[in-house]
């Protein structure tokens, strides 16, 4: 390393320099998402531990409507595709495309939330509330927090859409769209896990009186 004797070695890097070449905010989003994995992980673990442990009904098999949620799941997954298109439009400065695809993403996300509100309400009518039994407790908590994540994403995308309407989105703001997209895709992926566990697998669970489909609590290891 060449530097003048008796001097402190210095360098001239411009303000965009980062050690890894990655943008700070992108790295921040990845770090946040890794943290959020553990957040959902803990909630999902709680659900799994309490599968089939409800003392009273309604049980999942009584009220889970898989076909209905399959539709909303499909819509949410499609929204990820729209999000990708929105980013691509941003990168090629396609103003119409930006607005169109962002709007599509938002509409599909909102549809998902609409389905969720319908589902929550239907469950409530059928007698399942958050304090009814362990299924209600874990189901509403887990899907509720996921819904909150989606809603937050919708707010974020709406702000981006407003910026887009004002023509303030373009290749220079590609990162802003990309980071929102990272978040959106993450929320979608989490839903795939939730849908699989809560609906496709757990949707047939009954209560202890109706014949257990699974063993007692995962926490009670054989002794």
């Amino acid at each position: 390393m060449a530097y003048a004797s008796g001097q402190l070695p210095t360098t001239d890097v411009d303000h965009t320099y980062t050690t890894t070449g990655l943008n700070h905010r992108k790295l921040l989003m990845w770090t946040f998402l890794s943290s959020d994995c553990l957040f959902f992980g803990a909630l999902i673990a709680t659900y799994m531990v309490y599968r089939g442990q409800s003392l009273v009904g309604p049980y999942p098999i009584d009220i889970i409507d898989i076909p209905l949620t399959t539709i909303s799941t499909f819509v949410l997954l499609c929204s990820s595709f729209a999000m990708v298109q929105a980013l691509a439009a941003t990168n090629r400065n396609d103003q119409r495309g930006i607005q169109l695809w962002l709007l599509a993403t938002i509409l599909m996300g909102a549809t998902f939330i609409g389905f969720q509100i319908y589902e929550f309400n239907a469950f409530r009518m059928e007698g399942l509330k958050i304090d009814t039994n362990l299924f209600g407790t874990t189901f509403f908590t887990l899907t509720g927090f996921h819904g909150a994540h989606v809603t937050l994403g919708l707010v974020w995308l709406t702000i981006l859409l407003i910026m887009g309407r004002k023509g303030k989105l373009g290749p220079a703001q590609s990162l802003d769209v990309e980071i929102a997209g990272l978040y959106w895709h993450f929320v979608d992926i989490v839903w795939i896990v939730i849908f699989t566990l809560l609906y496709l697998i757990g949707g047939f669970d009954a209560g202890p009186t109706a014949g257990l489909l699974i063993e007692p609590s995962l926490l009670s290891l054989p002794t």
Binding site: I130, D131, L134, T138, T141, L219
Partner: peptide
């Protein structure tokens, strides 16, 4: 809710 409330089946 009954996450940890034994009366509701919580552990």
């Amino acid at each position: 809710t009954s996450f940890f409330n034994t009366a509701g089946g919580g552990d």
